[in-house]
Amino acid sequence: MRLFSSYLIGLIFGIGISISGMANPAKVLNFFDVAGNWDPSLIFVMGGALVVTFVGYWFVLRRAAPMIDAKFHLPENRHLDARLLGGAAVFGVGWGIAGFCPGGALPALGTGHFDVIAFVAALIAGIFAAKALMAMTGARAARVLRRET
């Protein structure tokens, strides 16, 4: 049941991404190119997704729990920190260079397009590099803390 519903939800997401243009780097980059070949379509993607999610979440999150899990898994960290903003800034630079974001590229894998596969391979390498870097700096911070206390 969990797997079947999750598959259908992924499918709805994948169809939405495919028809919206988010999987098409030319369209994404033209959205950001206000000074050039501006294509405002992505405002409509973002707007449609936000309105539906905002209203839907409002009803769903009034429930005590989701339908097939014991509780809602919502991020509890409320702090704005350098890691969040620095990460978001780097993400934006990469998105501006490549034109793909993860939500656009993962469904686009289904087209079998070579460029998508290349981007996703680099994306996965970046995720592993960041996790390794975090583990290294985390271990160093823990050592410093031990020495100081």
């Binding site: 519903s5 939405g16 919206s20 992505l42 409509f44 449609g48």
Partner: peptide, 29 residues
């Protein structure tokens, strides 16, 4: 690229529907 407000809006709405359904069923982002 051609400006495609309606299919982009429909695509966005589907992305929203998927997001709401995942929260409703598994409570996940």
């Amino acid at each position: 690229t051609i400006f495609t407000p309606w299919v982009s809006l429909a695509g966005g709405a589907l992305i929203g529907v998927a997001s709401v359904l995942l929260m409703l069923t598994l409570g996940r982002i």
